[in-house]
Nucleic acid binder design. Structure first.
Lengths: 297, 297
DNA sequence: ATCATTGATCGATTATTACGATGGCGCGTC
DNA sequence: GACGCGCCATCGTAATAATCGATCAATGAT
């Protein structure tokens, strides 16, 4: 395997080509003339070719030297770009980050969040991936994602989580449902309704039931949908009732459907929204700052 | 000025990303694990960012690390290309060379020479510049050219020259000129003819006169042309006679014109064709080999 | 609980880089 | 044509950095 020239050698060569003079080039590089001379000699010896032609009056580039200079300058520029990229990423909200989000959060939180991020931190590149919690955690451990935005708790090893805010559940029923407009419902009353829920795998399902202290087996669950929007349509058509997260309502998921929403009499009927990252991730503070940002926006 | 990462560090990082394991990567780089570990730490410290995420089971790349890896690989490839370019140029006839040629040689020698070069040394890139000797020497000293192919002698400082071969002069006259077909002419006889020569600056003019031991003032020179082809046309039209280099005849400069060529009775009526390069050029042997090639072809 | 694996750390050694001083060469000058 | 000047190469030495083997600490696996 042939040895490689040093970036330092290449930059010295570049300076030499620019100044056409060993002494001046050395001064520009903040090294002694002998150092630069030795570096050029070493470089030429390494490459096995003559790059510059010395004379007492000036220094000339060989035809090959010219080619090498061009390549060297390109390489040096690339290295500087690499460093600049890292420098830009050194401060929070200026690099790139891969965020996994579950489907019952993404459509309701991301539009506003991304808009705010773009406004406050235009350099920040946030890549989004929307999948079920289990898949997200898997991707997290595979290193495909850096941090997850999901509903907690969700069992996972070697991770840290941070709670951001609570997202209340509300009771959603058809327009003609026998319930006064401003009435609040009891979580326990759900047992007597045809409850529409998302299909297995969506944590919203589990969290909603748990928040209401309900057990799946004691409920009538006629159908399982794949998205909250679908469920809302089904509720609007009188097929049943459901539980919706407040953030979906805030995002106007009910607008135009006539479906009525009722708060629960009990407090704490909610899910916890939080971040999750690998416990040995080197970007913990940055994730934490992202959490602050999400909670605040 | 921010410090630069080392190519070694970048290659270690690349190996680490490839193997996902410090020990294996170190083995692949033929260094100890501690060395590679220290190098990565140093690199991260230098860039001020976390590139890899360590755990006891595997090594994961940060999102930024992924970006850095991509850039690093590109840089490393560029460096390898640079080295390869030089290696290819290390052996003669495989790099690039800038050759200056005078107008009274170029059209008659280059076609065949370049064809042979391409055949024997397809990797060799020879850049040609055609100008008068004085300009070529100037360009040579400016470093714009590496070597010249011209007629010798030509006064110049700090150069070395090498004679390659003699190029005989022949006497060229109109078809109806009063001279037996196979007759040879005396150089001294030129005094009585209307002699057409190239304009000032062409060394052919001086060399031709000197080869014939003639002085410009004792000749009838009705017109000065800018190219041998033009002169031949004028000779064909009966305007006068001229001296032509044998290489031009070999290149069939007379074909179709009816102009007759006559050798000189004297031997040594010729010009010397040779190479010239800066005396401190580092490619002397290569120029010499090029000379061999030209003389042989 | 114990063990195996892995990356980080430590101290010693070696290799590299850098410097100032000096030498040698080519060019211009007197 | 001898001299002086400017310039790059070389040398010896000092500082710096790279590398190694051994060991430690942390983390999963058994």
């Amino acid at each position: 395997m042939a040895r490689q020239p040093t970036l330092k050698q290449l930059s010295y060569l570049s300076a030499l080509a620019e100044h056409g003079h060993f002494g001046n080039a050395a001064r520009a590089c903040h090294v002694s003339q002998s150092t630069l001379s030795a570096a050029i000699i070493e470089l030429e010896s390494l490459l096995g070719v003559a790059l510059v032609e010395r004379s007492n009056r000036r220094v000339l580039l060989t035809a090959l030297g010219d080619e090498v200079i061009k390549r060297s300058r390109s390489i040096l520029t690339d290295v500087e770009d690499l460093v600049a990229t890292c420098e830009a990423s050194a401060e929070p909200f200026s690099g790139r980050m891969r965020l996994g989000v579950i489907p019952t959060i993404a459509p309701y939180t991301l539009p506003h969040l991304l808009k705010q991020l773009r406004r406050k931190h235009p350099e920040f590149q946030l890549f989004i991936r929307e999948e079920l919690s289990a898949r997200l955690v898997n991707a997290l451990h595979l290193g495909e994602l850096d941090v997850l935005l999901l509903a907690l708790p969700f069992a996972a090893d070697r991770v840290e989580t941070r709670h951001l805010f609570h997202d209340d559940f509300v009771f959603a029923c058809p327009p003609d449902y026998p319930l006064a407009d401003n009435a609040k419902v009891h979580a326990a009353d759900l047992r007597s309704h045809e409850l529409l829920l998302l299909e297995d795998g969506h944590c919203l399902r589990d969290h909603a039931l748990e928040a209401c202290s309900l057990n799946e087996v004691e409920l009538k669950i006629p159908y399982q949908a794949t998205s909250l929007t679908t469920i809302v349509q089904m509720v609007a058509n009188g097929i049943g009732v459901t539980l919706l997260p407040q953030m979906a309502l805030d995002a106007r998921i009910l607008s135009g459907t006539g479906v009525k929403a009722h708060q629960f009499k009990e407090s704490g009927v909610s899910r916890s929204i939080g971040l999750m990252w690998r416990s040995n991730s080197p970007r913990r503070e940055e994730f934490s700052l992202l959490g602050d940002f999400i909670a605040a926006s």
